[in-house]
């Protein structure tokens, strides 16, 4: 059998998603071929998080397909690390920081097997990378918002994946944690991983991501950050949202200054 032509790492083909009868994403076509820091950008309610959840099989597709490495997600879930939005869980839950990070190793452990020394070592390494090894024994509710977000990132690192998918990892996070998270994501890219991030802040998006997709229920544009974040594209994505247009002015300006 001929080896198939190189598959994109992540490919959305004609993806449509509806909640009940209300469509939230229309005909998304998007392929990511190379490891990079990839931002999914758009206004509130644009369907950014829904797109991620559709990729991970957490919301059903009304149409289209999503493939990782040319295969359905169910075949390759072990290669995909996931960082959900921080608000989706109860931080008062009686688990410690290292308990949560260990959850990243559960899929490989399988049913009924308990984490052993190997898993603990993975968890410790992951916590070291996000700078939280000192609070490993603490109950998760006693951390700051930024630290909690880093716990989730450490759990994804413990999955030891090839693709990382993050849903608003910078929302409500202090500057130090933002830098730390961005540092870890950059390391992942250097190590040849694809990192896909749902993000809403245009200014930082322009600084952080190699490539972006602009989304407002439909795909507006996708490609290298500088080529996509043009005033025309942003106008089409954020049409009528004037406060955000201000922000895009600043974003483009800053981009000009840093490059």
């Amino acid at each position: 059998m001929q080896p198939p032509p190189r598959e994109p790492i992540l490919e959305f083909h004609d993806v449509t998603v509806a909640y009940g009868r209300r469509p939230v994403l229309w005909n998304i076509d998007l392929a990511i071929d190379e490891p990079c820091l990839f931002g999914i950008i758009g206004p509130n309610g644009a369907g950014k998080s829904t797109l991620l959840k559709a990729a991970l099989g957490l919301v059903p597709l009304a149409g289209g397909t999503v493939r990782f490495f040319g295969q359905p997600f169910a075949e390759v879930r072990g290669r995909v690390g996931y960082v959900p939005q921080r608000e989706t869980v109860d931080w008062d839950f009686p688990v410690s920081v290292s308990d949560v990070v260990l959850m990243g190793t559960y899929a490989r452990l399988g049913w009924f097997r308990r984490p052993g020394p190997r898993e603990r070592e993975i968890a410790r390494e992951s916590l070291t990378r996000v700078g939280l090894v000192d609070v490993a024994g603490r109950q998760i509710g006693k951390l700051s918002g930024g630290q909690q977000q880093r716990v989730f990132l450490a759990r994804a690192l413990a999955q030891q994946a090839d693709v990382y998918v993050l849903d608003e990892p910078m929302a409500g996070v202090d500057a130090r944690s933002q830098d730390l998270i961005f540092g870890v994501l950059s390391e992942l890219r250097e190590a040849g991983r694809l990192v896909v991030v749902v993000h809403h802040d245009l200014r930082t998006a322009a600084q952080w991501f190699d490539r972006v997709a602009l989304i407002d229920m439909r795909l507006v544009a996708a490609g290298p950050t500088a080529a996509v974040l043009t005033p025309q594209n942003l106008e089409r994505t954020y049409a009528g949202r004037l406060d955000l247009l201000d922000e895009l002015g600043r974003a483009v300006e800053e981009r000009g200054r840093t490059s």
Partner: peptide, 22 residues
């Protein structure tokens, strides 16, 4: 007690549990 690991994971973070195949 046998399924404590799985039960804790699902109770704490069902969407992560689902995404990782549980």
């Amino acid at each position: 007690v046998l399924s404590l690991k799985e039960a804790t994971l699902v109770a704490f973070d069902p969407s992560f549990a689902a995404a990782t195949g549980w």
